[in-house]
């Protein structure tokens, strides 16, 4: 391992450590103010309110996905793999993409619900960005790398420029796997949404009576949709010869 490699590893580890400390501090803070949690006004009273807000996030979700795909193409096709910033970006994206989505859910609840004490749309925006962007970038990257070098060479040898090679050959070949990545992300988002709805509804029902709480049908719908998109995504990401 050479020196630059070592520095990159250290930076990656440092970010991870900072993230861990942040989570730890926030969660202990929250447990500390446990008594207050239930009386904090959230601005959201039921799960269906939350679902309405989630609907309003769909355009954002689409934009985030498109930008991530574009960014993945940029770093794979334009940045040289030997540069230090390529490796740092890669390392960071890997770390972010591997964090379980539950962590993001907890972070949303902890930081914003209880610390900011108001359920802002900004909360959802941030959660969606962290959930969506790294995973889409990662799957798009691996889809692009899965395209044979020989296909590129053949296309370049015919005089195509970089843009033509990407639009005519790399993108069509990578497309099934990119769609697979999109479904992975959709399933992550739906699962977290289901979790948030349960939290919201539990909160209101605890105040009244815990035993009267029933999981709403919205949650079941979200969870089954999440499972469905999981299956779809693994189906799409299976290696197939075109």
């Amino acid at each position: 391992m050479n020196r630059s490699e070592l520095i990159i590893q250290i930076i990656a580890l440092a970010t991870l450590t900072i993230a861990c400390v942040l989570v730890w501090v926030v969660t202990t803070e929250v447990f500390h103010v446990e008594g207050e949690i239930l009386s904090v006004p959230m601005g959201i009273d039921s799960g269906s309110d939350l679902i309405d807000r989630l609907y309003s996030m769909i355009p954002l979700l689409c934009v985030a996905m498109l930008l991530s795909i574009a960014f993945a193409f940029y770093i794979e096709e334009w940045l040289s793999e030997t540069t230090w910033y390529y490796r740092i970006i890669n390392q960071q994206i890997s770390i972010l993409a591997n964090i379980p989505s539950l962590i993001y859910g907890i972070l949303v609840i902890c930081i914003f619900l209880f610390q900011v004490k108001e359920f802002l749309n900004f909360t959802l925006v941030l959660a969606i960005v962290f959930l969506v962007v790294p995973v889409i970038i990662r799957t798009t990257q691996s889809a692009i790398r899965g395209v044979d070098l020989s296909v590129r060479e053949a296309a370049y040898a015919l005089g195509a420029n970089r843009w033509q090679v990407i639009t005519d050959h790399v993108f069509p070949r990578a497309f099934p796997k990119i769609t697979g990545g999109i479904f992975t992300v959709i399933s992550r988002v739906l699962a977290i949404a289901a979790l948030l709805i349960i939290v919201c509804e539990l909160r209101t029902s605890i105040i009244q009576d815990v035993s009267s709480y029933e999981i709403s049908s919205d949650v079941f719908v979200l969870i089954s949709l999440a499972l469905l998109s999981c299956v779809l995504s693994s189906f799409l990401q299976i290696n197939r010869n075109s």
Binding site: D148, S150, V151, E153, A154, L158, G159, Q164, D168
Partner: peptide, 28 residues
């Protein structure tokens, strides 16, 4: 590169129809 035709050892079929394979370079 358009002035030089290249044939590689193993055939590399671009994932296109036969027609589009041949028409690719003129189109570019």
């Amino acid at each position: 590169r358009r002035r030089i035709g290249m044939v590689l050892p193993l055939p590399v079929g671009l994932p296109l129809s036969i027609y589009d394979n041949v028409a690719f370079a003129p189109r570019t």
